[in-house]
Design a protein around this nucleic acid. Structure first.
Lengths: 136, 136
DNA sequence: CAGGATCCTCTGCGATACTG
DNA sequence: CAGTATCGCAGAGGATCCTG
């Protein structure tokens, strides 16, 4: 079964090929979830927002370049893992706000470190890259 | 052009669809490179190693679960971006050691934070996930 | 407005085989 | 030992169209 389409509410299978995934591999596993660029960007934006809270469209604008699909998927994943809370308002044009949970909020400082490092050092990386490429 | 095979020494094209990628988007760009799980794992392992230095096979063992191909690709990318230094010894069975550059080393503390956060909180994420899935 | 359903295109990455 | 070269496929993720 190709399994196209967006993940229906219970997103996907959780079992890897082997259930034998203890501590060390969990690190690895979790890194895979949290490490992708969209997740980090979304968490950072929520972290910066007033009340650590933004509605869908605002979040999408802030993150920039993310498709609606990926934002949905990313947010669903954050909600599922307890990092974000979804507030749904059954208004006439529906409004949905996403808020960092305390757990999610506790991750923000680390991500901001990461972000700051990049801001401070991407030039150096760029230079190194250009030199590497020139040398062939 | 399908472009299979491993990236020849100058790894790949660097230009995105638009060259118009200034500051904010660079963040995004860099996150894509550094954010993947293998890169982080490799940097962490090198950071922990004596002299921040390990040979290829040792590194592969430490990281665990990484294919030889991905380790090569990851290391090449770290070298290209000035985060790691490749030391080649033209011995009879060749030996290659990878060492963190000062730049690469400066990133390690942040990654260790990340790692520590995961170790401290993956249980909570797990619980949240199970509950989310139960509720459907 | 928020997001589900589809379709379709890349590419990440493992498996495998070969070399200096 | 530390790669390089290929093949091949599952899955990530964009573009679109459609609703409550």
């Amino acid at each position: 079964m190709p399994e196209h389409s967006m993940p229906p509410r219970p997103p996907t299978k959780e079992q890897a090929t082997r259930a034998a995934m203890i501590a060390s591999c969990n690190q690895n596993e979790v890194l895979t979830r949290l490490g992708d660029k969209w997740t980090i960007m979304v968490l950072l934006q929520l972290g910066e927002a007033p009340d650590h809270r933004l509605r869908f469209s605002a979040l999408r604008r802030e993150v920039g370049g993310i498709s609606q699909r990926m934002l949905t998927v990313t947010l669903r994943m954050l909600e599922r893992n307890g990092l974000a809370i979804r507030h749904y308002f059954a208004e006439v044009p529906p409004r949905v706000e996403y808020e960092l949970s305390p757990l999610g909020h506790s991750l923000v400082p680390t991500l901001e470190n990461f972000s700051a490092w990049i801001a401070a050092n991407w030039q150096d990386m760029d230079d190194a890259r250009r030199q590497y490429d020139r040398e062939g």
